[in-house]
Amino acid sequence: MINEILKYSFSDIFRMSFSFILTKLFYPGAMLVRRPISIRQKRGFHYGKGLSTGKNCRIEIFGDGVIEMGDRCQIGDNTHLVSSQLVKIGNDCLFASKIFVSDTSHGSYGEDASSPLDLPNSRPLVSDPVEIGDRVWLGENVVVLGGVTIGEGSIVGAGSVVTKSLPANCIAVGSPARPIKRFNFDSKTWEKIPR
């Protein structure tokens, strides 16, 4: 434990100690909520035991929205979570830095579409729930948009944009993200998915 602490600078140790004290006071059951953090409508934010966040995270909840996080989730620096309906994150998830997950969009762009003449910020909020399964790993700069389910055990590669649901136990990359490998439990290997 001491060797791990010595890997940090004195200022990092001081900041983490301060964050640790505030975590124990204001986030019961969490492991470490690093400062600064911004939470809009904290009443809609529910997390399990062992939560760990990086610095500069933003959690924004609008109206009756809810963000649910399971146990032992680790969220990297500059992660931004948005909900006006439901964002559900399973147990043991790992999010790298600069992740954006949102069930919300300003306006509708299918049937009953918003007009491009309307100011973007005045368009009504439209939402579609997001569900992220247990043991999902989102790489650096991943974006997850409304209406998406990511199956348990999946990995989403850095810089990917998830616009459609992904199956369990796959590796997905790209914009839009698509599965390129799936785990074979018989051979215990990741196998390429034929195009």
Rank of each mutant, 00 (worst) to 15 (best):
I2A: 12
E4V: 04
I5E: 08
I5M: 14
K7R: 09
D12P: 01
D12M: 10
I13L: 07
I13F: 03
F14D: 10
M16G: 00
S17F: 15
F18V: 15
F20R: 15
T23R: 00
T23N: 02
K24F: 13
Y27T: 02
Y27W: 08
P28W: 15
A30P: 05
M31K: 15
M31G: 14
R34Q: 14
P36Y: 09
I37C: 02
R40L: 12
Q41F: 10
R43M: 09
F45S: 00
F45N: 00
H46W: 07
H46M: 11
Y47E: 10
T53N: 05
K55Y: 10
N56I: 03
R58C: 13
R58G: 13
I59V: 15
E60V: 14
I61K: 09
D64Q: 11
G65V: 11
D71L: 05
R72L: 08
R72P: 01
C73T: 00
N78T: 09
T79K: 04
L81R: 00
S84Q: 07
V87F: 12
K88M: 14
D92C: 09
D92Q: 07
D92V: 06
L94Y: 04
F95D: 00
F95H: 05
I99M: 10
F100E: 11
S102Q: 06
D103E: 09
T104W: 11
G107H: 07
Y109F: 15
Y109E: 01
A113G: 09
S114F: 05
S114C: 03
L117M: 11
P120S: 08
P120I: 14
N121T: 14
N121P: 06
S122G: 01
L125C: 06
V126C: 10
V126W: 04
V130R: 06
E131C: 12
E131V: 13
E131G: 03
G133F: 11
V136L: 04
W137T: 03
L138G: 00
V142W: 12
V144C: 06
V144L: 06
G147M: 04
T149W: 07
I150N: 00
I150G: 01
I150H: 00
G151M: 01
G153E: 03
G153L: 07
G153T: 08
V156H: 01
V156M: 04
G159H: 01
V161T: 13
T163I: 10
S165R: 08
L166N: 01
L166E: 02
A172P: 07
G174N: 06
A177F: 13
A177G: 02
R178S: 11
R178D: 09
I180L: 12
F185S: 04
W190A: 02
E191H: 04
E191L: 00
I193P: 04
R195V: 13
